[in-house]
Simulated assay, not measured.
Amino acid sequence: MSKKKFGLNTICTHVGEVKDEQFKGAVSPMYLSSSYEFLDVDVKRYPRYFNTPNQEFLSKKIAALEHTEAAMIFGSGMAAISTMFFAFLKQGDHLVVQNTLYGGTVNFIKEEFPKYGIEYTFTNGYTVEDFEAAIKPNTKLIHIETPSNPLMTITDIKAIAKLGKSKGVLTSIDNTFASPVNQKPIDLGMDMVMHSATKYFGGHSDICAGAVASSSEHIERIWNVGKNLGGSLSDITVWMLERSMKTLGLRVKAQTKNAIKLAKWLEKHPKISKVNYPGLKSHPEYKLAKSQMSGFGAMMSFELLGDIDALKFQKKLKLIKSSMSLAGIESTMLSPYLTSHALLSQQERDNVGINDQLIRFSVGIEETKDLKRDINQAIVALELS
């Protein structure tokens, strides 16, 4: 049966398994060797070449989920995106990049691109007109992130893909927040899609990894750079990631279901001034999100009223964890100005709307009534202190 005909949970469970031909085990065996046969073999395997058995087969699962010909896994999300950038950008080239996106990506571009003579422009906004205005004759790549971290802005994927094709410019997207469960950018015309696989792919806050999926041609070009940069992933972690991805569909759908309930509740909460979640009808891009997402995801952000200290609030939480990362099965909250966007200046954060009262909320699989109770008790505890 064709993999394209498989349903989501079937792909998660079965595609990309390494068959245990010797003992017929139910799960993939783990190949820890860093040295493989060189003579008289079709594939010269080596961990840094991203082609050990576990690396090769997990990439097939990711490609199947993203509807691409091929994929690669990396040691982190930043290893994935930096390798992708360097594969398609050289001295004298120009990148157009969305102004609202993960702070680590912003910092990488600003810190590293000048060293290599690569030009870049951050858009003034995230409409297709903003991207078109930023394109130059030497533009080679447009990069977007939707939903964006942490403001949950929504960019028109199909329009950006169409713009790129009309200008002869490649397009890439960070699909981490949506995951392939809720969004398929390749089906909307994008050329490349990347993930911090640390997040929903891993899902249990115990893996650091990254991924890029695209055509075989593009992946070969990324591989040629990747083998030189050396950002491969150990087979122990690859095995853990494949194990975790078997439940990707179940986890993300449960988290998404919880998130919409909590977003609606927070929007009515007297101590919350604003909620950023694309599944709310009050979100400025609600209709766009609905048109390009099959689910609105489990990430949101919200702002507390000014009389509530955001950090003190987080310290009062008992169930929801204050955590650096996101997308695990457990719910977490953090202040982006101290974590994901700490490398940006105060002015840069102000320009994109990241203030000290903003809290990023990664919704887990817990019962929503318990999460609501925890938020309320934290606010009451502050009021009584």
Results as ranks from 00 to 15, higher is better:
1 M>K: 15
5 K>Y: 07
19 K>D: 07
20 D>M: 11
21 E>Y: 04
21 E>L: 07
31 Y>P: 01
35 S>M: 09
35 S>H: 13
36 Y>C: 08
36 Y>A: 09
46 Y>V: 10
51 N>H: 05
59 S>G: 12
61 K>T: 10
67 H>W: 00
74 F>P: 01
74 F>I: 05
82 S>H: 06
91 Q>L: 05
96 V>K: 13
102 Y>L: 11
106 V>R: 12
106 V>D: 14
111 E>Q: 15
121 T>K: 09
127 T>A: 11
130 D>R: 01
133 A>P: 05
137 P>N: 09
139 T>M: 03
141 L>S: 06
152 M>W: 01
163 L>N: 09
164 G>Q: 09
173 I>R: 00
180 P>L: 00
180 P>A: 01
191 D>T: 07
191 D>E: 10
192 M>A: 09
200 Y>L: 06
200 Y>M: 11
202 G>D: 13
207 I>H: 12
213 A>C: 04
217 E>F: 10
232 S>I: 02
240 M>S: 08
245 M>V: 03
252 V>L: 10
253 K>Q: 10
256 T>N: 12
264 K>Q: 11
291 S>V: 06
292 Q>K: 00
292 Q>G: 00
296 F>G: 01
298 A>V: 04
299 M>E: 08
299 M>K: 07
301 S>D: 01
307 D>N: 13
312 K>G: 12
314 Q>A: 10
319 L>N: 05
321 K>A: 07
333 M>W: 06
333 M>F: 10
339 T>Y: 11
340 S>Q: 15
342 A>D: 07
345 S>L: 00
352 V>H: 06
361 F>T: 00
365 I>T: 15
368 T>L: 04
374 D>K: 07
376 N>I: 14
